[in-house]
């Protein structure tokens, strides 16, 4: 008998939560960072896909908080706590530098800045990063299974691996 798993998709600048037996994933992360916060015991998890590091750089006041690392991480944490998650840990992936060119442009180091901003937001919330696969120069698709707390990663030219 085959069991079809529900997979919840998280888009760009979005955040969602799931519970076993559903998985949660986001596709085609480049310089963006995907952060999974999860409660291993209760098998509840949430995934945030941020595009930019810092909401103070937003040029409008009514910005989408899920777009920025510093606002998305606390909101995801709260969403999980409301669902009863405790003892929350993190796994993260993404933050690649997709172009080798681009000195002096917004393309430069955006991946690194996103990684640092997520790490900082997690530190502020006292969340431990259990494992991460960040940086480099290739895109990633990531999928988290809350029943095993494993994050699987697919890159071009690579077999799927888990962290």
């Amino acid at each position: 008998m085959s069991i079809t798993k529900t997979i919840v998709n998280v888009g760009i600048a979005d955040t969602k939560t799931v519970q076993t037996p559903a998985n949660i994933r986001t596709l085609g992360l480049g310089s963006c960072v995907g952060t999974v916060l999860y409660d291993e015991k209760r098998q509840i998890a949430g995934l945030s896909h941020i595009l930019l590091p810092d909401s103070s750089q937003a040029k409008t006041s009514n910005f989408n908080p899920m777009k920025y690392a510093d606002t998305a991480i606390p909101q995801l944490l709260e969403m999980l706590q409301v669902k009863g998650a405790r003892n929350i840990k993190a796994k993260m992936a993404g933050g690649a530098q997709m172009f080798q060119t681009g000195k002096g442009t917004s393309f430069m180091r955006i991946g690194d800045k996103n990684i640092e901003a997520v790490q900082e937001a997690l530190r502020k919330s006292n969340i431990r990063i259990v494992s991460s696969d960040v940086g480099g120069n290739v895109g990633r698709t990531i999928e988290f299974d809350p029943s095993t707390s494993m994050l699987s990663i697919r890159k071009r030219n690579h077999d799927i691996y888990t962290i």
Binding site: G28, G30, S31, K59, T60, G102, R156
Partner: peptide, 26 residues
Amino acid sequence: SVPHLGMDMAGAIMTMGLLEISQVTD
């Protein structure tokens, strides 16, 4: 500008072109 070239998943490449406007709008 000079060209920025990437060969990868569309999501990873295209978001680079959206970074600038994403500061202002969704």
